[in-house]
């Protein structure tokens, strides 16, 4: 499938950048004229992935987060969120709803939200190297 537009950016893994990250992704996707609900699904999923990188990938100690957003033909959006943090030992376990290593204040819902709000999610991870989450969603075409 042909990529017709793309943006890349990186930012420090600080919680104060979570709003910026989802805002930047949603600003880029606006060109596809998404519905409010589609935009909210994407913003929520990006927020979950970025929070995971900050809390789990970098264990709150900081680092860089890299985001690539691609727009393909047929209004398909792909968002790649990458960190160079500690990696996930057991991806399957990490993706189980309610499983968390984040303590009492984390709901353990991050991956469940991404799975439910996006069309597809792919997670690759290497211990000591980092984690990449790729989210895809097709935006409804509003034919005039």
């Amino acid at each position: 499938m042909k990529c017709i537009n793309e943006v890349k950016f990186k930012f420090p893994a600080k919680s104060s950048n979570e709003a910026f990250a989802r805002g930047a992704v949603s600003a880029f996707i606006m060109q596809l004229d998404p519905t409010i609900s589609e935009l909210s699904d994407i913003k929520t999923s990006v927020s979950e992935a970025v929070t995971n990188s900050i809390v789990h990938g970098y264990l709150g100690k900081g680092g860089e987060i890299y985001i690539t957003v691609k727009i393909f033909e047929e209004n398909i959006v792909s968002i790649k969120i990458r960190d160079k943090g500690c990696g996930i030992e057991d991806i399957e376990k990490a993706m189980e709803p309610l499983f968390t290593t984040g303590g009492d204040e984390r709901a353990g819902l991050g991956f469940a939200v991404m799975q439910s709000f996006m069309d597809s999610i792919k997670v690759t991870s290497k211990i000591g190297k980092g984690t990449t989450v790729t989210l895809k969603k097709r935006i409804t075409k509003n034919d005039p």
Binding site: S40, T44, S47, E48, D104, E105, R106, A107, V113
Partner: peptide
Amino acid sequence: QFMDSSGIGLIMGRYR
């Protein structure tokens, strides 16, 4: 206006 799963974590933590 917007919340991710932190909005749920907030409830769970306060519940405890």
